[in-house]
Design a protein around this nucleic acid. Structure first.
Lengths: 153, 153
DNA sequence: CAGTATCCTATTTGATACTG
DNA sequence: CAGTATCAAATAGGATACTG
């Protein structure tokens, strides 16, 4: 990470002294977006809207499995953050068009960095999960009786 | 996003036909990592471990606000995915050292892309939230009576 | 069409106490 | 020191029904 947001100590010795109060993390912009982006549907909606503007039910059909309620909530969230726009056309029946804003489109790049990483390493991760699952079933021993003799305090 | 994982239609016309079953998204590697990374503590722990290895209570002190339970769970998750390693030294009292693996370190880059985006746009997002909050209080009208007359069904 | 309202379940997180 | 166990609270998510 860049280090601009929540300054983790540059390289201080134990004990580490973070310049933060107990819950400053709650307001950390990085934690903030990652939690939004980490919810169940946001990324998917952003990616789909990244293709072109969509109307509500069109999105609903386009993202199988999402409930009307969650689609609404997700879109409201994106709108609130200025990532998507909502344009209402007073026709009958009404038509509402959602589209990414410039800000929303600017997120597509960074997002794909993580996405690419995920795709690239998915097998390795899957293998790790399987292996750790096995180890839980078998072993009970200590891995490395080496290196450190006694911990500092 | 790269398009390798969940192929969103390249640019097909309405109605869009996603080549996915209802809940294939649940197993999408991208959704998968983003949900892990979107939890409350994982990114923070990864970033701190990105500095150097830490022992358990050292991490606990280094991340104010995290409970012992969540620190354990977060670390177990990272370990399971192969992002962090856990080395037990059979001293008395016991000493356990956590560190990022190569895989874990390889995530730092992609993560910082999103992190930098968040830092860069945090004010714009904050302003948007404030503005939308205001609009909820005031307006009730339609924004754009323009462009479309009647929606296609 | 594009939602809202309500109810309910599941998952996440936190607080507290105890242990090898 | 490095956890585990248990319980409670908060939040996310889903199903269903109704509406301008």
């Amino acid at each position: 990470m860049s280090g601009t947001h929540t300054d983790v100590p540059s390289m201080v010795a134990t004990p580490l002294v973070l310049p933060v109060v107990a819950d400053e993390y709650e307001q950390c912009p990085v934690t903030d977006v990652l939690r939004r982006v980490g919810d169940k549907w946001t990324v998917l909606v952003v990616v789909v809207l990244g293709q072109r503007p969509y109307r509500f039910n069109e999105l609903h059909r386009g993202i199988p499995g999402i409930s009307q309620r969650m689609l609404t909530r997700t879109l409201r969230g994106l709108e609130e953050d200025g990532l998507a726009s909502r344009a209402v056309f007073p026709t009958v029946p009404p038509s509402v068009e959602y589209a990414l804003t410039d800000l929303g489109r600017s997120l597509l790049g960074p997002l794909s960095a993580v996405a690419d990483w995920a795709v690239e390493h998915q097998e390795q991760i899957a293998r790790s999960r399987a292996r750790v699952g096995q180890e839980r079933f078998t072993a009970g021993g200590v891995q490395e009786p080496s290196r450190i003799a006694a911990p500092g305090q």
